[in-house]
Design a protein around this nucleic acid. Sequence first.
DNA 1: CAGGATCCTATCCGATACTG
DNA 2: CAGTATCGGATAGGATCCTG
Lengths: 123, 123
Amino acid sequence: MEEGAQPRQAETGKRYDVFHTDCPASDVVDHVTSKWGIWVLIALRSNDLRFYELRESIQGISEKMLAQTLRALAQDGLVWREVEPTVPPQVTYGLTEFGGDVGEPLTELFDRITRRLSPGSER
Amino acid sequence: MEEGAQPRQAETGKRYDVFHTDCPASDVVDHVTSKWGIWVLIALRSNDLRFYELRESIQGISEKMLAQTLRALAQDGLVWREVEPTVPPQVTYGLTEFGGDVGEPLTELFDRITRRLSPGSER
DNA sequence: CAGGATCCTATCCGATACTG
DNA sequence: CAGTATCGGATAGGATCCTG
């Protein structure tokens, strides 16, 4: 949505219909901004990580939710998944270009909020 | 990993403890990235809006969730609320400086996703 | 118009158990 | 190690009615 690009034209009754739930992007947005999606994306911004590393990294996440979140994000083309058929198996996750693209504003978001909430102690 | 924001105070044995659920920022993050929070913030970026305007603007939101979301965001200091004691009453909402600060990466996020999903054809 | 109060349902999500 | 499957409790969220 471009800055001041509120259509605001058509008097078809709906004056501010800007973003809808039926917009295809909102599905991705929902996944990204899901309870764990944002943390997964932020975690993967620094390194590719294996499943258990992600689990350790993101405090409080259950294996179920991690797997579920990863599946959704992979389906959306935000993260890739590489399986090495060893014993025991190793699965590594990382961000696609799209994922990195999306992770950037997310990190910025988190950073701004954190900075705001800890004034003085940061930087 | 440490994007500059996280203390990363060596927890006992925890190697990747970057962002936790117990971080005070994650509460705000949760509100912002709640199902409707992001849309409210994006909606308010262009204009201050009244309650019913927000409801019209954000397709699919119920009054309950709008009120609830606005309350949470106001409590976090992201949006302000102005009541004009007229009849009928008018309540206008807008972004605080913090809210605008946070809304920026959110808009960027939405914009990047939208752009990716509609290559070539701008809506 | 702006919402609170209630009720009720869908889903989220954790715990547990099981598989390759 | 990296999951899947299932169950059940908690909670998010919608619908409806009601109030200032």
